[in-house]
Design a protein around this nucleic acid. Structure first.
Lengths: 192, 192
DNA sequence: GAACGACATGTAGCTTTCGACATGTCATCG
DNA sequence: CGATGACATGTCGAAAGCTACATGTCGTTC
């Protein structure tokens, strides 16, 4: 239930509406933890019922802003301090790599080139954004600094994957004579 | 529905039982796309009903091995060639980073040190495994070579994250005077 | 004043995924 | 021959998450 704690964490920065939170998730946050608005609105209802958040104000266009309660703040801190980090991740890009041998060599080349471009562009965009933080354009609040740390991870991962895609194109592992041809031979196997 | 195609991809390497496939997912594959056995067994039933796989043999202990059909092979190839890659990923480690400002500085230090250790160890383990592939201990089949490419991505990501965790510990972003103290001030904000 | 687009919140139904429970098979070792 | 542990397959129900649908508000612009 990471979404629950993510919403609490965002509300710890200050009151926000479901719409605000959904926007946050559609931006940087959404690239490490996707969430759509129906999920957010219904989780907010549950959080309110649990007393972890409360309605702060109602604005125009039936806007409803929530504020985190003391219990909510305690809960998100407990999560950060006590709950073990789940190190597994879900990443279709890498998942597909296990099946590259089924692709036609030309398709694979094109695919890897596109991936390299994508990751390099994403890394550059994140790097540019990180630079604005370093220039102090967002202030120096602790939230901004935490976001800067998260951003750095995004930059490094995307750079790493751009490098990987380039390496894969250059390496002969995929250009060897029989690569990408049709029928299965025997498996590769994996260790524990 | 990536699991569906993942199972087809694994079965393209050769016949396997649900138990075999679950073991594959509990190893390297599971760190980029987690899947438990109930999901695998029920997906296999659906795949068989769709004619994409068929029962190859039944062995001892009511073992049931499946084989991919021509339709299944076509389908997994279609997926690889035609379906757009979903570049979003789900990664709790990074998600948490957005909320680091809520942690006590000492807890955060310890957390980052543990993360660095974890990623460095994982990277080293994967690197060692990749080396055995490079020494040809698993043969030179196309599957092995594709797995080598996937493995390289795992190595690079884990190295990148180990470097990130180290950087975060060394950077003053988190050691600045007010970092990690209790109450919200004002938000950092995010761009589109 | 009509149309449009951004703001804003929700419901319904479906698929995916997970944890817990349940069962049966076979080899090995004491 | 009984216990243990790895092998092997499943069911059930709940939670999580997604897509599509539905509705309403407000400011701007033609």
């Amino acid at each position: 239930m990471s979404l629950r704690h993510g919403l609490l964490g965002l509300l710890a920065e200050g009151p926000a509406s479901g719409y605000d939170l959904a926007r946050r998730f559609s931006q940087a946050l959404g690239s490490v933890w996707p969430a759509q608005h129906p999920q957010i609105y219904s989780e907010l209802v549950r959080l309110e019922a649990a007393g972890l958040i409360e309605v702060e104000s109602t604005g125009p266009r039936r806007r409803k802003a929530y504020r985190i309660t003391d219990a909510g703040l305690t809960e998100v801190r407990r999560w950060l301090a006590e709950v073990d980090v789940d190190h597994t991740f879900r990443m279709e890009v890498l998942f597909r790599a296990y099946f590259y041998w089924l692709m036609e060599p030309e398709d694979l080349k094109a695919h890897l080139a596109a991936e390299q471009r994508f990751f390099a562009e994403t890394a550059a965009a994140l790097r540019g954004y990180a630079d604005t933080k370093d220039r102090g354009e967002w202030g120096t609040s602790k939230q901004t600094r935490a976001m800067r740390i998260a951003l750095e991870a995004g930059v490094r991962i995307n750079e790493a994957l751009a490098g990987w895609a380039q390496w894969a194109q250059e390496t002969d592992v995929m250009t060897a004579e029989d690569f990408g041809t049709a029928k299965p031979d025997d498996g590769g196997g994996e260790p524990a």
